[in-house]
Design a protein around this nucleic acid. Structure first.
Length: 290
DNA sequence: CACTTGACCTGTCCGC
DNA sequence: TGCGGACAGGTCAAGT
């Protein structure tokens, strides 16, 4: 479930919590979650100090002073939770979804010099972290193919139109979920932005006008900015770097709101399947023109 | 090549 | 209460 706003929220939290900390230990119980944890690159992890925490699309990049970078994808159920050395202190807030760590979903534990920890939890094991030489990060296949960041101010409507029209034959929802078109949109913000732009998600890209596409990019930017402000969307699994929930779903207009009234016109919101995903629309505001 | 579907996993919920 | 099956949804491989 972590999409751009959730990953950005985690990035901001980690930037406050782990920069300048030195890693002294690594425990990884799940080879799938950290495929090169036990290879010879580990020497570039242990003893390394965190320089900076970056994000590209839905990927976190924890840069070490060893010229290596931890590249992390949370996929659907991944969490990165920092817990201070004083177990019941600041790292353990009351509104946390996390009770005691490590728990049965903990796949990797990173221990810092002060006795504090960073836990990589992932119920469904789709997520992963991998250590790469920092200089190699831009050459990772995903990094080479991923599209522009939607919140960069110089990413304009014209550029968006050009990129999204490469997928003219598919549905507009599939097109904006395609990470090579633009970075960071997942199921929640796809539905929310398509409702905002009043476009039916199953509409073929070729049948969406340039004017509508400009509106859609504006909605993507607005929805993502609001979500970052609210700390992202928590349904079941997602938490920030302190284990706290995000509140964006309280502000969602259609996502997971089937059976409720559309906030724009009052018609009942329905759930359908588009591009193989659960999809929420207002059937009045988002006319199916196929 | 463009596009769609299935696989990867585990936990939860629903109907029988 | 137990149990099978659908569903959750990011990405890539495989299939059409």
């Amino acid at each position: 479930m972590p999409e751009l706003p959730e990953v950005e929220t985690v990035r901001r939290g980690l930037s406050r919590l782990i920069v300048d900390k030195t890693i002294v230990q690594l425990d990884s119980s799940s080879p799938k979650s950290f495929p090169n944890a036990h290879s010879d690159v580990q020497q570039f992890l242990i003893g390394g100090k965190i320089k900076k925490v970056n994000r590209r699309a839905k990927v976190l990049l924890i840069e070490l002073n060893t010229d290596y970078t931890l590249v992390i994808h949370l996929k659907m159920t991944g969490q990165l939770v920092y817990v201070g050395a004083e177990r019941f202190g600041a790292g353990h807030p009351n509104d946390s979804l996390i009770h005691e760590l490590p728990d049965r979903s903990t796949r990797v534990t990173i221990t810092f010099r002060e006795g504090d920890h960073l836990y990589f939890n992932d119920q469904r094991k789709f997520g992963w972290m991998k250590l790469y030489p920092t200089i190699e990060v831009p050459n990772i296949d995903f990094m080479k193919r991923v599209g522009p960041e939607p919140l960069e101010e110089d990413f304009t409507g014209q550029q968006f139109i050009k990129r999204v029209r490469r997928r003219n034959g598919t549905s507009i929802k599939a097109a904006i979920l395609d990470q090579t078109v633009l970075a960071g949109v997942g199921n929640i913000y796809a539905d929310e932005s398509l409702w905002g732009a009043a476009i039916h998600p199953a509409t073929r890209v070729r049948d969406v006008t340039d004017k509508q596409l400009k509106k859609l990019l504006k909605e993507i930017k607005e929805v993502m900015s609001l979500s970052i402000e609210k700390g992202g969307s928590t349904d079941k699994n997602y938490v920030d770097a302190e284990g706290k929930r995000g509140s964006y779903l309280e502000f969602a207009r259609v996502f997971r709101r089937q059976g409720q009234n559309c906030p724009r016109c009052g018609v009942i919101i329905v759930k359908l399947r588009v591009a193989g995903r659960g999809t929420h629309i207002c059937p009045h505001c988002q006319q199916d023109i196929r």
